[in-house]
Amino acid sequence: MKQCPVPCLFVAQHQQDMASIRKHLLEGHQCRDAWLALSKLVHDPRQRKDCLERASILAPDDEELLIAYLEARLAIDPADRFAQQRLNEIRTMRLLSDVKTPYFHEQPKPRLIGDILVSIGAITEAELQEVLAEQRRGSLLVSDRRIGQLLLRRGLITPSKLAKALIIQQQERSRARTAPQVLGEYLVEHGYITAAQLEAVLTEQIRLDQQGKRYSLGQLLVRMNMLSKDEVERAAKEYEKAFWTQFNA
């Protein structure tokens, strides 16, 4: 596998030639620019989404590329809740960045989920590198190549370990202001549920997700008898109000 520089000179010279770009990729080049160029040449929305996903994996810090990928997912499935939530988070943080004051200090950059799993002893660094390599060479036919899901499929972690790592990651993102506080954090902070209950409900959410069953946090809290439907709705309204209050402070 060869990692291409950005910008890639080959793609710059052949960006309108689909055959040349495909040949470039088939030769084993890990090339963000090639996948990005291909996304503009294909006509099928699913193929465009797949190309943008591959490009985004190769450039995880490119926010504009991530936005394009999420929008491509929503163009195929407007009900894709994960894509819509992530897109909303990015747009919200861009708004928040416009209202930062000099009193905000630079926070440590939040860790990636794989690094967190290594730090808590769930996997080894070697296992992480092996799965990252699998992610980069993954088939376009596999729609979910998130690190957590790949580790679950390999049996290297349990849903409980992934849930714990996701909670840590969200806490780090909130402290660093790279993502707004999520509902689960709000529920713990305001005494609706305990940290242990949040971990349990996220574990169940991940377990069901592996079976192709999609449940929201609120639905599972009711299903697992942690909160009533009325309590979930009341907490959700409080959370929504607290969230938007940030913009009027």
Rank of each mutant, 00 (worst) to 15 (best):
L9C: 03
R136N: 13
L166Q: 12
T194W: 10
T245G: 07
D230L: 14
G148L: 05
Q210N: 02
V142R: 11
I157K: 08
H29G: 01
E125L: 10
L36H: 11
I167Q: 00
L151E: 07
A75S: 14
P78Q: 06
E240T: 13
N88V: 08
G138S: 15
Q246G: 10
A55V: 13
K23T: 12
G155I: 10
P60Q: 03
L166D: 10
R214K: 11
L217M: 00
I168N: 08
A236N: 12
I90R: 12
G138E: 14
I168L: 06
Q210K: 06
G138Q: 15
I57T: 12
I193T: 10
P7Y: 03
M93Q: 15
K237R: 15
E204N: 06
A235H: 13
L202M: 14
L36F: 14
A75F: 06
S228V: 00
I120L: 13
G184T: 05
R91V: 09
L96N: 07
M18T: 05
R111S: 12
V182W: 12
A235N: 14
Q181E: 12
Q210T: 04
R154A: 04
E199I: 12
S119H: 07
G138F: 13
A179E: 07
L65Y: 05
A68R: 11
R111V: 01
S216A: 01
C31Q: 07
R175Q: 13
L217R: 03
R214Y: 03
R46L: 12
S228P: 03
V201K: 02
D98R: 13
I116V: 06
L41Y: 09
Q16I: 07
C31L: 05
K237D: 14
S174H: 13
Y103A: 12
I67Q: 08
S39G: 13
A133V: 15
L220T: 04
A34Q: 02
G121K: 04
V6A: 13
L70E: 06
D33P: 04
E204A: 11
I120W: 03
E238D: 13
Y239E: 11
E53S: 04
I21W: 03
K2Q: 10
H43A: 10
K241E: 14
T124R: 00
I123G: 02
Y186E: 03
E204L: 12
H190L: 02
S39F: 08
A165Y: 00
L117H: 08
Q211D: 08
R136K: 14
R32N: 03
I168A: 07
Q13P: 00
L41F: 09
A19W: 07
Y192S: 14
V42Q: 05
L74Q: 00
I206S: 04
Q15C: 07
K2W: 07
P110R: 10
V118E: 08
E238R: 08
K49L: 07
M93N: 15
Q170T: 07
L66D: 11
R214L: 10
S97H: 09
H43D: 14
L74K: 00
A165C: 02
Y192F: 15
L140C: 12
L65P: 08
R177F: 05
R175S: 07
D50L: 08
L87D: 09
T194D: 11
A242W: 12
K161E: 15
F247D: 01
R73I: 08
